[in-house]
């Protein structure tokens, strides 16, 4: 009992000092006035939040959203058939394939991102293979494009899409498919009315699990996109370090936190809805 109390109080103290207090400082800073000499001064103001809502930040926000959405969609299209096939293998094979899916996570993601640079480069693996096979006359520009950013995001986040989908497929009762077939449903109808609804919880949680981090992976855009695509994280960094407008940087961070909270709320709502309809929510994953 004492041990339990100790663990809980240590954890609470840790979270208070290193998570709660810094965030409160951030929120406080976002209402202060900027000052060149002291970084942050009185009086409190709402001006910082007004400055965030300008066209340039809207463009940046929309662009991040777009990249993340495309990456999520590609992940879904790749992971869905994969998870389906995976669930059809023997238990032992399934375990081995899942293990192989997780294996790359043992290497730091930054190192893997640098490896992608080598693969996509003009003298990289893809270009030299295509040129030597005579498919291309000249190497094409793959690196430092939006394609590279989406490629990187899909590569890094694909397992997060596969796992919830696999779990949905694994729990799917195949006798329902047989019943559907006996009753005269063709392949498309069986997919539309049986498979899709039963795997919907997997689709929803997979999409959210991929979409949220995709918005945050700024280093992918920097390294693979050539730092041309300004993302939300770069804006915050520039405001703090280069423009030294701490209050506005803080206001920007606060708004990003609110956005994350909103998405998580939507996720929770979707979960509730799914379990109400008798589907699987993420507790069953």
């Amino acid at each position: 009992m004492d041990f339990r109390r100790l663990i809980i109080s240590v954890t609470l103290a840790w979270l208070t000092v290193f998570v709660f207090l810094p965030h409160m400082l951030l929120v406080g800073t976002s209402f202060m006035s900027p000052d060149a000499d002291h970084l942050v001064v009185w009086p409190t103001t709402l001006a910082n939040f007004e400055k965030v809502f300008t066209p340039v930040y809207f463009t940046v926000f929309w662009h991040s959203l777009e990249l993340a959405a495309i990456a999520t969609l590609v992940c879904l299209l790749v992971a869905y058939p994969f998870a389906w096939l995976l669930s059809g293998f023997k238990q032992r094979t399934q375990a081995i394939l899942l293990f192989l899916l997780i294996l790359p996570f043992w290497t730091n993601s930054l190192i893997r991102t640098y490896a992608i640079k080598i693969i996509l480069g003009k003298k990289g693996l893809i270009n030299s293979a295509l040129v030597s096979m005579g498919i291309l006359d000249e190497p094409v520009q793959l690196l430092y494009t939006e394609f590279a950013v989406i490629f990187g995001l899909v590569y890094l986040l694909l397992p997060f899409m596969v796992l919830p989908l696999y779990s949905s497929f694994d729990k799917m009762d195949t006798s329902l498919l047989e019943a559907g077939k006996d009753l005269g449903a063709n392949a498309l109808q069986r997919f539309r009315h049986i498979i899709l609804p039963l795997t919907m919880p997997g689709i929803i949680s997979g999409c959210l699990i991929v979409f949220l981090p995709a918005m945050g992976m700024f280093y992918i855009a920097d390294l693979l996109g050539g730092a041309k695509n300004l993302l939300l994280g770069n804006v915050v960094k520039n405001l703090f370090l280069v423009a030294r407008d701490w209050p506005m940087g803080a206001a920007f961070s606060v708004i990003m936190m609110l956005m994350m909270a909103l998405l998580l709320l939507m996720y929770a709502q979707a979960n509730k809805l799914v379990s109400k309809k008798g589907g699987l929510n993420d507790e069953n994953l």
Partner: peptide
Amino acid sequence: DDAMKLMTEYWQKLKAGM
């Protein structure tokens, strides 16, 4: 700081494609 702030604003516009 004022000129630097102005440059930072334009820089963000350049990178946002505006």
